[in-house]
Design a protein around this nucleic acid. Structure first.
Lengths: 226, 226
DNA sequence: TGGTCGGCATTGTCCGACAATAGGCACTCG
DNA sequence: CGAGTGCCTATTGTCGGACAATGCCGACCA
């Protein structure tokens, strides 16, 4: 038996977030309260509150009396988001290194090992590699043991994925996991400053490539889910 | 003539935020929708949305069907907030250093000079010093030119001031401004890495003292206002 | 003592209504 | 032809009331 403890508003927010991240609504699309209310079979009030939630996460924007729309990001917005990601992820790497213990280290190494195993397969798809990469970064955030940081990070990543539907591309898949080895080692060794530096480097190369190519990504809901 | 373009919800949120930061409601106080609605002469719906906004900022918490209350922060929460402040403020210092120009440098130096002037006065109050200190930090954030970062920073600071009603205490007021000199110089000189390091040091000493003493602070509304 | 059962306060959700506003269209006037 | 003007429509902003769902607390009972 499974009972649903989430409020309707929460469910609506989750659903809409997922739809946006999955690309069912794309940047600039207009969302009207009454239409959504009919589609979701909810009252306008509830839908409205869900939209408010998404707005606070930066996924949708509203113009007074004009309507809601999926956020459109300018170049400057992307710049902001990139720098925020650097700030949060490097901080998380530091904190993870500071609070490292055997159990955490094991989780990190296991995740990295899985990542490497995936990369070695010949028939591996980009999607799978991407998923592993995401999971690893997400794990580092989790190991920082800061819910607030995790929340902010998720918001940043979600905003980013409205704009870019990529993470990895046609560069060497095999070495994809390996670029994380040093970072994971630094964290496990309890070297905060080194971990911080490597985390920044890792994101930098990632983003640099992101500027060149944009590819559809088919599992954007990963971050929004939890 | 001055017309009010803000929605009622926004005004309610601003008002409540100010009340919380000013100490009219303290940590743990219960807020009931219908009571607030009567007090503010608004509908429950509107109040509810305002509370939702504050919740997304971390100022109030809600337990389903039980009620809203001003957030109570645990030791771990404070730890999270401290680390977030470090991450955001050091990043802002870096970004300010990276994008420094004559006009920005002038603003920084002017603010610092004002700070120093205040500290030199014999009859200066702690409140005034605190205000200057806040303004300087706020300026650095602003100079990073990232609205998202500013928003997150404000949220972090607001949460912090629910718990701690202090910024400065009975340590040497005269040298208070001077501890910022190196940081400002690094930013103006366009040295991101140095600026980052000094920003972290600055916050660390600040927080360290914050753990010892807690003093009422009488201008908490500064950050929430803008 | 410990568990159960109501009652009360408060939130969660809905509906319907109406005012306020933005955005687009047609119209006028030069 | 172009610019400004005024109207119409779609949509949001706000409201009040209503009722169900739930958490809390105290009373009662074994």
């Amino acid at each position: 038996m499974k009972i649903n403890k989430q409020s309707l508003e929460e469910q609506a927010a989750d659903y809409l977030r997922q739809q946006i991240l999955a690309g069912a609504f794309v940047s600039g699309d207009k969302l009207t309260e009454s239409t959504l209310a009919k589609d979701l079979e909810l009252s306008r009030t509830t839908v409205r509150m869900a939209l408010n939630t998404l707005a606070s996460e930066g996924l949708v924007s509203q113009k007074p009396y004009a309507g809601w729309s999926v956020t459109t990001l300018s170049g400057h917005d992307i710049w902001e988001i990139y720098h925020l990601r650097v700030a949060l992820e490097s901080q998380a790497a530091m904190m993870a290194a500071e609070t490292i213990n055997d159990e955490k280290a094991k989780r990190l190494r296991d995740e990295l090992a899985a990542f490497q195993a995936i990369c070695k397969r010949k028939d591996v798809s980009l999607a799978e590699v991407t998923l592993c990469d995401f999971k690893l970064h997400k794990l580092i955030i989790e190991l920082s043991e800061s819910d607030r940081l995790a929340r902010m990070y998720k918001s940043v990543i979600n905003q980013l994925s409205i704009y870019i539907r990529i993470t990895h591309f046609d560069f060497d898949i095999e070495s994809s996991a390996d670029t994380h080895i040093d970072l994971i080692n630094a964290i496990c060794a309890g070297e905060p400053e080194k971990a911080r530096r490597l985390a920044i480097e890792n994101i930098s190369t990632f983003t640099e490539m992101g500027q060149k190519l944009k590819i559809e990504q088919d599992h954007t809901s990963d971050f929004a889910a939890s």
